[in-house]
Amino acid sequence: MTGSKAVQAHKGRPREFDADSALDKALHVFWQRGYEGTSLTDLTEAMGINRPSLYAAFGNKEELFRRALDRYAERGPSRALREALAEATARGVVALLLKNVAHALTDPGNPRGCLAVQGALTCGEASDAIKQELCKRRSEAEQMLRERLQRAKDEGDLASDADPAQLARFVSTITQGMSVQAAGGASRDDLFHVADMAMTAWPG
C-alpha cells in the first residue's frame, strides 16, 4: 500500500478508504479496550472496513496494534515527554512532563489512562509479545529521561550526588501511577495535585 489510501471490497466493487483515519479509529478502540479486550469485529466495525481489507492494509491484529502504538507515540501522552525534554533545567523537564501527562491522561477526546500502561497490565500469557513490546517502549521513554537528567548532572544543573537513573525511575513510577488513577476516574486537578506533591520531593 502506498500513501494513506487503501482499497476495500464493498458489495463486489472496490472503494477507497483512508488508511490514516482507519488507523486512528483502531487506536481509539485499542486504547479504550486494551489489546486482548479488542476483537477483530470491534476493529472492523470501528474502522468501517471488512477483514480482508484490514489484513491487506495492516496485516494481522498484532501488526495493526504496533502501528497504532506508533501513532499513539505521535499523538498521545507519549508526546508529553518529547516536549518536556526541551526544557532548560532538569526541574523544568520533570515539572512540564508531569503537567503534560496530567493533561493527556484526562483529555476528554481520548479514552482515560495510558495505552502503554493499561495494555501491559491487561495482557495475559497469550499476548506476551505485545506485553514485552509495551514494556520495551516504556523502558525506552525512561531511558530518554535518564539521559536528559544525566546531561543535567554533567552540566551542574543537578547535584553531583544525584542519581539520574533513580530519578528517572521515580518520575516514571509517578506517571504510570497517574495513568492508573486517571483510568479509575481521577480528575485533572487530582493529577495536578499528584504532580505538585511529586515536585516537592525533587532535589533542590
Rank of each mutant, 00 (worst) to 15 (best):
T2F: 10
S4Y: 14
K5C: 05
H10V: 12
G12Y: 01
R13Y: 12
R13A: 14
R15A: 07
D18M: 03
D18T: 06
S21P: 00
L23N: 06
L23Y: 07
D24P: 00
D24M: 14
K25T: 10
A26C: 04
R33L: 11
G34P: 02
E36I: 04
T38P: 02
L40W: 06
D42K: 01
L43W: 01
L43R: 00
T44D: 07
M47D: 05
G48V: 12
R51K: 15
S53Y: 05
S53F: 09
L54S: 02
Y55C: 03
G59I: 10
N60H: 13
E62A: 15
L64E: 02
R67V: 06
R67Q: 15
R67S: 13
Y72M: 04
A73R: 08
P77F: 01
S78C: 10
E87A: 10
A90F: 06
A90T: 07
A90C: 13
R91S: 13
R91T: 14
V93K: 02
V94D: 00
K99S: 09
N100I: 00
H103F: 14
A104W: 01
L105N: 00
P108Q: 05
N110F: 11
R112V: 01
C114F: 00
A116C: 14
E125M: 13
E125P: 12
A126I: 11
D128R: 14
A129K: 13
I130C: 03
Q132C: 11
Q132I: 10
E133K: 09
R138D: 11
R138L: 14
S139G: 15
S139W: 02
A141P: 01
E142T: 13
M144L: 10
M144T: 08
R146F: 02
E147N: 07
E147D: 12
E147T: 12
Q150E: 14
Q150I: 04
R151W: 12
A152T: 01
K153V: 08
K153R: 15
D154C: 09
G156V: 06
G156I: 05
G156T: 04
D157V: 05
A159L: 11
A159S: 12
D161P: 05
D161M: 07
D163M: 05
P164L: 15
R169V: 11
F170L: 14
F170Q: 15
V171P: 06
T173D: 13
I174T: 11
G177C: 11
S179R: 04
S179W: 02
Q181A: 15
A182C: 07
G185W: 00
R188M: 09
L191S: 05
L191G: 03
F192H: 14
F192C: 11
A198T: 07
M199L: 15
W202K: 06
W202H: 02
W202N: 00
G204C: 03
G204A: 15
